[in-house]
Design a protein around this nucleic acid. Sequence first.
DNA 1: CTGAAAGCGCTAACAC
DNA 2: GTGTTAGCGCTTTCAG
Lengths: 362, 362
Amino acid sequence: MARKIDRTVVTIVDVAAKAGVSTATASRALGGYGRVSQATTERVRAAAAELGYQPNALAQSMIRGTTRTIGVVVADIENPFFARAARGIGDVARAAGYEVLLVNTDENLQTEVKATEVLAQKRVDGIIIAPADTREFAHLSRARRAGLGVVLLDRRIPGFDASVVRVDNVVAGRTAVQHLLELGHRKIGLLTGVPHQHVRNDALRASGSSSPALDRLIGYYEAFRDVGVQLRAHYVKTGGTDRAWGASATHQLLSLSEPPTAMVASDAIIALGMIDAVRRAPFVVVPEHLSLISIDEPDWAEVVDPTLTVVAQPDYEMGAEAARILLDQLSHSGPFPIVDRVLETVLKVRLSTSSVAVPSTS
Amino acid sequence: MARKIDRTVVTIVDVAAKAGVSTATASRALGGYGRVSQATTERVRAAAAELGYQPNALAQSMIRGTTRTIGVVVADIENPFFARAARGIGDVARAAGYEVLLVNTDENLQTEVKATEVLAQKRVDGIIIAPADTREFAHLSRARRAGLGVVLLDRRIPGFDASVVRVDNVVAGRTAVQHLLELGHRKIGLLTGVPHQHVRNDALRASGSSSPALDRLIGYYEAFRDVGVQLRAHYVKTGGTDRAWGASATHQLLSLSEPPTAMVASDAIIALGMIDAVRRAPFVVVPEHLSLISIDEPDWAEVVDPTLTVVAQPDYEMGAEAARILLDQLSHSGPFPIVDRVLETVLKVRLSTSSVAVPSTS
DNA sequence: CTGAAAGCGCTAACAC
DNA sequence: GTGTTAGCGCTTTCAG
């Protein structure tokens, strides 16, 4: 009964031999297609089970021309937005019998290009990507030319026609600032996680470029314009994307001779840095002295003190929807309509925002 | 100059034809091995570039017998621990030229078994897995028999010899409780995210089973035993793993006629629920009335009020180390020594824990 | 230095 | 019903 363990991989040839049939019949029996007698089918299945046969998906894919795998390219899996979106993608994909190949790019274009290439070489059926730089998309065009489905997550790319799932970040930004303006704030600090190279001081929209952070920034401007108030440039901080940057930018704003009475963080990571800095600032009480609001809702929004007002986006659903669109596209072989799915953001007012204090004449 | 876009995938045959050589030569030129003349090499490379040739990694893998891909199986990518560990794995893997196939299992054994099978079929070279149930490992044995490298993350499996990267969770649990005991606490509520089926009321250790949550629970008991104090069973809550459960368990403890003066959450997710519930409880002030401590350090530990005392584990490094061990193992073809890498946890005392208050005789 | 040919594991015509 | 055979795209002996 004790048999030597053979570390050799068992192939369909072994199964066929053991069942006393040809590989073709074995394949049919295992795959449940074509006509195979009941008896043979059982014999083959038994042999496969006994040998612990695992079909080689690579070989199958070569023939079928599909890997039933989708590639997901995100900037940072530690960012709750991407983690939740990835989860949404994974759930939908797995339910449809697809696997997910996930790559982290650290917001680095080089890595992203490389990752896209590798995914194409691994012959994933399609990719869902939150592109790092919306002006560089040759790699995506190449991927699509190679026959891959491409769905954009969170960020559009002007000039690249692909389906996209996103929120209206202009609206998100405007919503955040409007809320503060309605509370009477005028000195509003804006922390925007847009990398330096993206920033154009004027004619933001005209630049043709676009990114969530940039769009949010545009939204901020619009909200000010709507009420006829001039946004003061020195209250706008751009150029970084991580927690430390959020903290230092916040610190700088608080050190101004006339510090802002409210601040907006353009994403949850920056919000973390912002709160870090505020906590460390002596005498600054939220929301009495300073109102805080974040775009995107981290899971800790309700455990900080005071609870954090946010403009929430449907992270999980965005991923899930992107996956649905991609899978849909893959199931129809021909050309497929491009969709621009814009999901809704929602302002959740909590305790970190309140009316601007009556200036005390201390 | 305008040429019709052919959506046909370009193969090495096309490249060879265009360069006027055989596929063998083309392959050598592209692969940079064997002897090929300078001129030919350049001609082939040019042809490849012009055609936008992307080698089919599936075909390559079939021959080479390696996919340069590792599979990662985690319970929940939204859990910061796994997100950071996955990031560590990804960084190390990518640096070594490997890709990462990530699967989420929702702590569900069925999904995990299925995922392992799929990864094996896709012929990943190895897998890193945080197993959901440490008593079920037939699927892992099968994977290994199929020639895959297997490295366990965070959880050992008694009876399954594989390398593992973990922390000593008994120590982690003991550290947390010791800290509270030293502060004078005796009524300590323990929230432990161990699924019901794992819980054995007595002889925890003797059960042979093991999981981070269970080990932490053992650590709690040991800390009590060390100081000769009896742990009161009704202060121990087990059975759930999510935020809502953490909140309701906390609520129950706080509703006792003699509520605990301190509480330990066995992971960051449960800690979130715990803080939720504490915030909602009227008259409970942290740390004056109630000290809080969490095992594992979420990124929001320093933005909650008061800042959260934790027993931190090196999440990212655990993933990175697991990847290193696996890659090491893969590079040596033969049998490889099993390693049990235990990384250190560290107590970070913040403001959520303090000495037990002198009981007021109100 | 280059080409012809075999074959990785599997499936899908096409026969019988 | 079942077997034979070709071939997916690539690499790699083996000849020349």
